[in-house]
Computed example of a mutant assay.
Amino acid sequence: MLIKLDTISTNPKQLVTKAKRLDGSGVSLNELMPPRFIQMHSKFASLDILMEASGFNVKTPADFKAIPAREWNQFIALNTNFESWQDMLSEAGRLYIHKQLFT
């Protein structure tokens, strides 16, 4: 596999900048888990549809934080090929960073 060295040298700077936005938002979940990622790991077409199917009312970040972790992890385990939300986040993060560094 050929790796463009100029891509590796500039993309980490962009990645750090994106992760440390002034408003503290960092990378959005929809950016971290685009439709292709969700489709590969679940029966859903997008993260929004997956969240809607969960039965939890998720309109804001506060709504998402209010979901009981045990119930959310159970939903993720039953509806994706991940054992937990943390596993799903970790894989999405790994793929996101790889994409940022090498494309």
Score class of each variant (00 low, 15 high):
33 M>S: 07
70 R>Q: 10
13 K>L: 14
9 S>Q: 12
11 N>M: 01
76 I>K: 02
82 F>W: 05
3 I>E: 10
44 F>E: 08
30 N>I: 15
34 P>L: 01
63 D>L: 02
93 G>N: 13
90 S>H: 13
54 S>H: 01
13 K>M: 05
21 R>Q: 15
9 S>M: 09
55 G>F: 04
22 L>N: 15
52 E>Q: 13
56 F>A: 06
81 N>A: 06
80 T>N: 05
91 E>Y: 02
14 Q>T: 10
56 F>L: 00
38 I>N: 05
40 M>V: 08
93 G>T: 11
27 V>A: 06
77 A>L: 07
20 K>E: 15
23 D>R: 06
62 A>C: 04
15 L>K: 06
8 I>A: 03
47 L>K: 00
43 K>P: 04
50 L>R: 08
95 L>Y: 06
84 S>F: 03
66 A>M: 07
25 S>Y: 06
77 A>P: 05
24 G>S: 12
57 N>H: 09
46 S>E: 09
64 F>Q: 12
84 S>G: 01
17 T>D: 14
61 P>T: 00
51 M>H: 08
80 T>E: 00
81 N>S: 05
16 V>S: 05
31 E>S: 07
53 A>W: 00
78 L>F: 08
103 T>A: 10
30 N>W: 12
35 P>Q: 00
4 K>Y: 08
37 F>Q: 02
33 M>K: 11
35 P>H: 09
69 A>L: 10
51 M>F: 06
59 K>R: 09
84 S>V: 02
78 L>T: 14
79 N>Q: 13
5 L>F: 10
40 M>Y: 07
33 M>H: 10
29 L>R: 14
7 T>D: 07
35 P>N: 04
103 T>M: 09
60 T>F: 00
49 I>A: 13
61 P>Q: 06
30 N>F: 13
7 T>L: 12
76 I>V: 12
61 P>A: 07
47 L>S: 06
60 T>P: 03
32 L>H: 07
42 S>C: 01
82 F>K: 02
55 G>H: 05
83 E>D: 11
68 P>Y: 05
14 Q>Y: 14
9 S>K: 11
21 R>K: 15
82 F>P: 08
97 I>K: 04
69 A>Y: 05
61 P>R: 01
6 D>F: 08
86 Q>H: 12
27 V>Q: 01
53 A>I: 05
72 W>I: 15
79 N>L: 02
56 F>C: 02
52 E>H: 13
23 D>P: 13
65 K>C: 12
21 R>F: 06
46 S>H: 10
47 L>Q: 08
22 L>V: 13
68 P>N: 01
35 P>C: 02
3 I>N: 08
3 I>T: 15
46 S>P: 01
85 W>D: 14
13 K>Q: 04
31 E>K: 11
79 N>V: 04
41 H>D: 09
75 F>C: 07
80 T>S: 11
102 F>D: 04
22 L>H: 13
67 I>Y: 03
29 L>A: 14
26 G>A: 10
34 P>T: 05
50 L>S: 11
58 V>N: 03
7 T>F: 07
94 R>T: 11
27 V>G: 01
86 Q>E: 15
73 N>F: 03
28 S>P: 11
10 T>N: 03
55 G>L: 01
